[in-house]
């Protein structure tokens, strides 16, 4: 099996409900033609509601045109851990005793759909090992109040293709 010539490193803004800021980082491998698998870890903050941290595995179909434009559709599954944010958590016993409670947070399943319609692969257009992308993510948080709470997020980021072939580097 041929070794990959580059290592894709992705860094992206992940804005839950667009404006609750976060970031994720990850990598991807090509499976077959336009199909990829990716792994990412990330975090975001919904101020005075929750902080989320997640790890996701996704499968995507990405089409890159010769001019550089690319679009991508994907689905994935991951783990989301959320912590209530913005204040101390208290409990009150039946006897009326007030205590502070550690914020252990909640574990959730995170199914996910990606739709990136704005992408540009600079490897095609400018021979630069970089791809920019923007799109929407729809993800679920289950269980949440006995159902699956949907969320949407804005992705805005880039993938840098780190050249693993030292000989090519030397020639440049």
């Amino acid at each position: 099996m041929a070794l990959p010539q580059s290592l894709p490193l992705t860094l992206s803004y992940f804005g839950e409900t667009l404006v609750h800021p976060g970031v994720y980082a990850g990598s991807e491998i090509s499976i077959h033609e336009n199909f990829l698998a990716s792994l990412s870890i990330g975090t975001y903050l919904h101020y005075r509601h929750h902080r989320g941290a997640f790890v996701n595995a996704d499968f995507s179909w990405r089409k890159t045109f010769s001019i550089g434009y690319s679009m991508e559709f994907g689905a994935g599954l991951g783990y989301l851990h959320t912590w209530s944010h913005g204040g101390t958590i208290y409990t009150v016993t039946d006897a009326g005793v007030v205590e502070e409670k550690p914020n252990y947070g909640f574990s959730s399943l995170m199914p996910k759909l990606n739709l990136n319609l704005l992408g540009w692969d600079f490897r095609k257009s400018h021979d630069i090992p970089f791809r920019a992308f923007s799109g929407i993510v729809l993800f679920g948080q289950y269980p949440y109040n006995q159902f699956m709470m949907p969320h949407f997020a804005l992705q805005l980021g880039g993938t840098y293709y780190l050249n693993l072939n030292k000989e090519n580097d030397h020639e440049k």
Binding site: L11, Y13, V19, P21, Y47, I128, F130, L156, G157
Partner: peptide, 19 residues
Amino acid sequence: NVIITLILLFSFIQCASLL
């Protein structure tokens, strides 16, 4: 290009950190 992307990314994050 990487630096420009990072600057845009984190500027957006800062602007969006609002309640």
